[in-house]
Design a protein around this nucleic acid. Structure first.
Length: 271
DNA sequence: ATGACCGTACGATACGGA
Protein backbone atom coordinates (compact mmCIF):
# COMPACT_ATOMS: atom_id res chain seq x y z
CA UNK A 1 0.00 0.00 0.00
CA UNK A 2 1.61 3.20 -1.22
CA UNK A 3 0.63 6.39 0.62
CA UNK A 4 1.78 9.84 -0.54
CA UNK A 5 1.45 13.45 0.56
CA UNK A 6 1.73 16.35 -1.84
CA UNK A 7 1.28 20.10 -1.34
CA UNK A 8 0.03 20.92 -4.84
CA UNK A 9 -0.13 24.72 -4.47
CA UNK A 10 -3.38 25.17 -6.39
CA UNK A 11 -5.10 21.97 -7.55
CA UNK A 12 -6.73 23.43 -10.65
CA UNK A 13 -3.66 25.20 -11.97
CA UNK A 14 -1.60 22.11 -11.06
CA UNK A 15 -4.03 19.54 -12.43
CA UNK A 16 -1.88 18.44 -15.43
CA UNK A 17 1.13 17.92 -13.14
CA UNK A 18 -0.97 16.10 -10.56
CA UNK A 19 -2.53 13.75 -13.12
CA UNK A 20 0.84 12.99 -14.69
CA UNK A 21 2.28 12.09 -11.29
CA UNK A 22 -0.75 9.94 -10.36
CA UNK A 23 -0.44 8.08 -13.65
CA UNK A 24 3.31 7.55 -13.20
CA UNK A 25 3.37 6.42 -9.55
CA UNK A 26 -0.15 5.08 -9.01
CA UNK A 27 -0.19 5.72 -5.25
CA UNK A 28 -3.02 3.96 -3.43
CA UNK A 29 -3.71 6.87 -1.10
CA UNK A 30 -2.87 10.54 -1.65
CA UNK A 31 -3.05 13.41 0.84
CA UNK A 32 -3.19 16.80 -0.84
CA UNK A 33 -2.73 20.26 0.65
CA UNK A 34 -3.08 23.84 -0.56
CA UNK A 35 -5.92 23.11 -2.96
CA UNK A 36 -6.58 26.86 -3.15
CA UNK A 37 -10.03 26.01 -4.45
CA UNK A 38 -13.56 26.45 -3.20
CA UNK A 39 -15.43 23.27 -2.21
CA UNK A 40 -17.37 23.41 -5.48
CA UNK A 41 -14.26 23.99 -7.61
CA UNK A 42 -12.60 20.65 -6.77
CA UNK A 43 -11.77 18.75 -10.00
CA UNK A 44 -13.50 15.50 -8.99
CA UNK A 45 -14.38 14.39 -12.52
CA UNK A 46 -10.77 14.56 -13.72
CA UNK A 47 -9.56 12.62 -10.67
CA UNK A 48 -12.29 10.00 -11.08
CA UNK A 49 -11.30 9.61 -14.72
CA UNK A 50 -7.77 8.92 -13.46
CA UNK A 51 -9.15 6.18 -11.20
CA UNK A 52 -9.39 7.98 -7.87
CA UNK A 53 -12.18 8.66 -5.44
CA UNK A 54 -11.84 11.65 -3.14
CA UNK A 55 -12.98 13.49 -0.06
CA UNK A 56 -11.94 17.10 0.34
CA UNK A 57 -12.36 20.27 2.33
CA UNK A 58 -12.12 23.25 0.03
CA UNK A 59 -11.56 26.93 0.71
CA UNK A 60 -11.54 29.90 -1.60
CA UNK A 61 -8.04 31.24 -2.37
CA UNK A 62 -6.09 29.54 0.41
CA UNK A 63 -5.60 26.26 2.24
CA UNK A 64 -7.77 23.30 1.26
CA UNK A 65 -7.00 19.60 1.87
CA UNK A 66 -8.04 16.32 0.26
CA UNK A 67 -7.62 12.57 0.48
CA UNK A 68 -7.67 10.44 -2.68
CA UNK A 69 -7.93 6.67 -2.90
CA UNK A 70 -7.27 4.58 -5.98
CA UNK A 71 -10.36 2.64 -6.94
CA UNK A 72 -12.30 3.69 -3.85
CA UNK A 73 -13.87 6.62 -2.10
CA UNK A 74 -12.29 7.33 1.30
CA UNK A 75 -14.74 7.06 4.19
CA UNK A 76 -14.82 10.51 5.75
CA UNK A 77 -14.36 10.65 9.53
CA UNK A 78 -13.57 14.37 10.08
CA UNK A 79 -13.28 17.55 8.08
CA UNK A 80 -12.11 19.67 11.03
CA UNK A 81 -9.43 19.35 13.66
CA UNK A 82 -11.23 19.31 17.02
CA UNK A 83 -10.63 21.93 19.68
CA UNK A 84 -11.64 25.26 18.15
CA UNK A 85 -15.17 25.77 16.78
CA UNK A 86 -14.10 29.18 15.43
CA UNK A 87 -11.42 27.69 13.17
CA UNK A 88 -12.85 28.19 9.66
CA UNK A 89 -9.67 27.33 7.73
CA UNK A 90 -9.57 24.14 5.65
CA UNK A 91 -6.43 22.57 7.11
CA UNK A 92 -7.46 19.07 8.20
CA UNK A 93 -9.40 16.16 6.77
CA UNK A 94 -9.48 12.56 7.92
CA UNK A 95 -10.83 9.41 6.33
CA UNK A 96 -10.56 5.63 6.44
CA UNK A 97 -9.08 3.78 3.47
CA UNK A 98 -8.60 0.02 3.39
CA UNK A 99 -8.39 -0.32 7.17
CA UNK A 100 -6.09 2.68 7.69
CA UNK A 101 -7.15 6.00 9.17
CA UNK A 102 -5.56 8.72 7.05
CA UNK A 103 -5.22 12.39 7.97
CA UNK A 104 -4.25 15.08 5.46
CA UNK A 105 -3.11 18.17 7.33
CA UNK A 106 -1.76 21.61 6.54
CA UNK A 107 -0.26 23.38 9.52
CA UNK A 108 -0.24 27.19 9.55
CA UNK A 109 2.99 28.71 8.27
CA UNK A 110 3.42 30.95 11.31
CA UNK A 111 5.46 33.75 9.78
CA UNK A 112 6.24 36.42 10.64
CA UNK A 113 7.60 35.49 14.03
CA UNK A 114 6.98 36.67 16.63
CA UNK A 115 3.37 37.69 16.13
CA UNK A 116 -0.24 36.51 16.06
CA UNK A 117 0.35 34.18 13.10
CA UNK A 118 3.05 32.34 15.00
CA UNK A 119 0.76 32.11 18.04
CA UNK A 120 -1.94 30.64 15.79
CA UNK A 121 0.51 28.06 14.47
CA UNK A 122 1.42 26.91 17.96
CA UNK A 123 -2.24 26.78 19.01
CA UNK A 124 -3.11 24.66 15.96
CA UNK A 125 -0.16 22.41 16.76
CA UNK A 126 -1.45 21.86 20.30
CA UNK A 127 -4.84 20.82 18.92
CA UNK A 128 -3.10 18.37 16.56
CA UNK A 129 -1.04 16.94 19.42
CA UNK A 130 -4.20 16.47 21.51
CA UNK A 131 -6.11 14.78 18.69
CA UNK A 132 -3.13 12.59 17.77
CA UNK A 133 -2.93 11.44 21.40
CA UNK A 134 -6.56 10.35 21.23
CA UNK A 135 -5.99 8.41 18.02
CA UNK A 136 -2.90 6.79 19.53
CA UNK A 137 -4.78 5.84 22.68
CA UNK A 138 -7.59 4.34 20.61
CA UNK A 139 -5.10 1.96 18.98
CA UNK A 140 -6.24 2.76 15.45
CA UNK A 141 -3.82 2.23 12.53
CA UNK A 142 -3.11 5.85 11.54
CA UNK A 143 -0.99 7.84 9.12
CA UNK A 144 -0.74 11.58 9.82
CA UNK A 145 0.46 13.03 6.52
CA UNK A 146 0.84 16.53 5.24
CA UNK A 147 2.64 19.83 5.18
CA UNK A 148 3.61 20.44 8.81
CA UNK A 149 5.46 23.65 7.97
CA UNK A 150 8.19 22.48 10.34
CA UNK A 151 11.84 21.75 9.57
CA UNK A 152 12.38 19.16 12.32
CA UNK A 153 16.19 19.43 12.62
CA UNK A 154 19.14 21.25 11.05
CA UNK A 155 19.68 18.14 8.90
CA UNK A 156 16.36 18.96 7.24
CA UNK A 157 17.41 22.23 5.60
CA UNK A 158 20.17 23.16 3.18
CA UNK A 159 23.51 23.95 4.83
CA UNK A 160 24.49 27.57 5.23
CA UNK A 161 20.93 28.88 5.40
CA UNK A 162 20.21 32.15 7.16
CA UNK A 163 16.69 31.57 8.43
CA UNK A 164 17.16 32.44 12.08
CA UNK A 165 13.80 34.16 12.48
CA UNK A 166 11.80 31.71 10.38
CA UNK A 167 8.75 30.17 12.08
CA UNK A 168 9.44 26.88 10.26
CA UNK A 169 12.70 26.44 12.17
CA UNK A 170 11.79 28.04 15.49
CA UNK A 171 12.54 26.09 18.64
CA UNK A 172 8.88 26.12 19.64
CA UNK A 173 7.88 24.64 16.25
CA UNK A 174 10.55 21.96 16.47
CA UNK A 175 9.75 21.05 20.07
CA UNK A 176 6.05 20.77 19.21
CA UNK A 177 6.88 18.39 16.36
CA UNK A 178 9.18 16.41 18.66
CA UNK A 179 6.46 16.16 21.31
CA UNK A 180 4.06 14.84 18.70
CA UNK A 181 6.52 12.22 17.43
CA UNK A 182 7.36 11.24 21.02
CA UNK A 183 3.81 10.03 21.53
CA UNK A 184 5.04 6.99 19.63
CA UNK A 185 4.74 8.02 15.98
CA UNK A 186 7.32 6.98 13.39
CA UNK A 187 8.66 9.65 11.03
CA UNK A 188 8.61 7.40 7.97
CA UNK A 189 11.11 9.28 5.79
CA UNK A 190 13.74 9.59 8.52
CA UNK A 191 13.16 6.01 9.59
CA UNK A 192 14.06 4.77 6.12
CA UNK A 193 16.82 7.37 5.53
CA UNK A 194 18.50 8.25 8.85
CA UNK A 195 21.12 10.31 7.02
CA UNK A 196 21.04 12.66 4.10
CA UNK A 197 18.88 15.12 2.25
CA UNK A 198 15.14 14.62 2.27
CA UNK A 199 13.97 18.00 1.03
CA UNK A 200 10.31 18.22 0.07
CA UNK A 201 10.16 21.98 -0.60
CA UNK A 202 12.27 24.32 -2.69
CA UNK A 203 11.14 27.98 -2.82
CA UNK A 204 10.36 29.47 -6.20
CA UNK A 205 12.61 32.40 -5.31
CA UNK A 206 16.39 32.64 -5.19
CA UNK A 207 17.11 29.75 -7.60
CA UNK A 208 16.47 27.36 -4.74
CA UNK A 209 15.60 24.38 -6.97
CA UNK A 210 18.54 24.67 -9.40
CA UNK A 211 20.85 25.00 -6.40
CA UNK A 212 19.09 22.20 -4.47
CA UNK A 213 18.54 24.45 -1.48
CA UNK A 214 15.47 22.86 0.03
CA UNK A 215 13.81 21.97 3.29
CA UNK A 216 11.89 18.98 4.64
CA UNK A 217 8.43 20.27 5.53
CA UNK A 218 6.16 17.41 4.48
CA UNK A 219 6.00 14.43 6.81
CA UNK A 220 4.26 11.06 7.15
CA UNK A 221 3.87 9.84 10.72
CA UNK A 222 2.87 6.24 11.37
CA UNK A 223 1.22 4.72 14.42
CA UNK A 224 3.12 1.73 15.88
CA UNK A 225 0.63 -0.77 14.47
CA UNK A 226 1.54 0.46 10.97
CA UNK A 227 5.20 1.35 11.47
CA UNK A 228 6.30 -2.29 11.53
CA UNK A 229 4.91 -2.65 8.00
CA UNK A 230 7.02 0.23 6.63
CA UNK A 231 9.22 -1.07 3.80
CA UNK A 232 10.07 2.05 1.82
CA UNK A 233 9.80 5.85 1.94
CA UNK A 234 11.18 8.65 -0.19
CA UNK A 235 10.59 11.95 -1.97
CA UNK A 236 9.68 12.13 -5.67
CA UNK A 237 12.15 14.90 -6.42
CA UNK A 238 11.66 14.67 -10.18
CA UNK A 239 8.14 16.09 -9.79
CA UNK A 240 9.64 19.38 -8.53
CA UNK A 241 11.71 19.70 -11.72
CA UNK A 242 8.80 19.51 -14.17
CA UNK A 243 7.44 22.51 -16.01
CA UNK A 244 4.76 24.28 -14.00
CA UNK A 245 5.64 22.36 -10.82
CA UNK A 246 4.45 23.04 -7.28
CA UNK A 247 7.14 24.33 -4.93
CA UNK A 248 6.73 21.05 -3.01
CA UNK A 249 7.51 17.50 -4.17
CA UNK A 250 5.45 14.47 -3.13
CA UNK A 251 6.70 12.39 -0.20
CA UNK A 252 5.56 8.78 0.06
CA UNK A 253 5.86 5.49 1.89
CA UNK A 254 5.03 1.85 1.26
CA UNK A 255 3.39 -0.46 3.78
CA UNK A 256 3.99 -4.16 3.34
CA UNK A 257 1.25 -6.74 3.87
CA UNK A 258 -0.24 -7.27 7.28
CA UNK A 259 1.07 -10.30 9.12
CA UNK A 260 -1.47 -13.06 9.14
CA UNK A 261 -2.79 -13.90 12.57
CA UNK A 262 -3.17 -17.52 13.57
CA UNK A 263 -6.48 -18.89 12.43
CA UNK A 264 -7.63 -15.59 10.94
CA UNK A 265 -6.92 -15.16 7.26
CA UNK A 266 -6.71 -11.55 6.33
CA UNK A 267 -7.23 -10.17 2.86
CA UNK A 268 -3.99 -9.57 1.05
CA UNK A 269 -2.91 -5.93 1.10
CA UNK A 270 -2.68 -4.38 -2.35
CA UNK A 271 1.04 -3.90 -3.08
C1' DA B 1 16.97 44.43 0.12
C1' DT B 2 10.22 48.12 -0.36
C1' DG B 3 13.86 43.06 -4.44
C1' DA B 4 13.09 38.20 -6.68
C1' DC B 5 8.72 33.69 -7.74
C1' DC B 6 4.07 31.87 -7.88
C1' DG B 7 -1.22 31.38 -7.31
C1' DT B 8 -5.27 33.67 -6.07
C1' DA B 9 -8.78 37.36 -6.61
C1' DC B 10 -9.20 41.28 -8.69
C1' DG B 11 -9.20 44.21 -12.24
C1' DA B 12 -3.85 46.60 -14.21
C1' DT B 13 -2.24 45.71 -7.97
C1' DA B 14 -2.26 43.38 -3.34
C1' DC B 15 -1.73 39.48 -0.39
C1' DG B 16 -0.05 35.07 1.36
C1' DG B 17 3.23 31.82 1.07
C1' DA B 18 8.03 29.63 3.48
Amino acid sequence: MRIATFNVNGINTRLPNLLQWLEAERPDVVCLQELKADQHAFPLAALEAAGYGAVWQGQRSWNGVAILARGATPVLTRRRLPGDPDDAQARYIEAAVDGVLVASLYLPNGNPRPGPKFDDKLAWFERLIAHAAELMAAGVPVVLAGDYNVVPTEADIYPGHREKENALLAGQSRSAFARLVDQGWTDALRQRHPEGRLWTFWAYLHQRWPNDKGMRLDHLLLSPNLAFRLTEADVSRDVRGKAGASDHAPAWLVLGPETRRRGARKPKASA
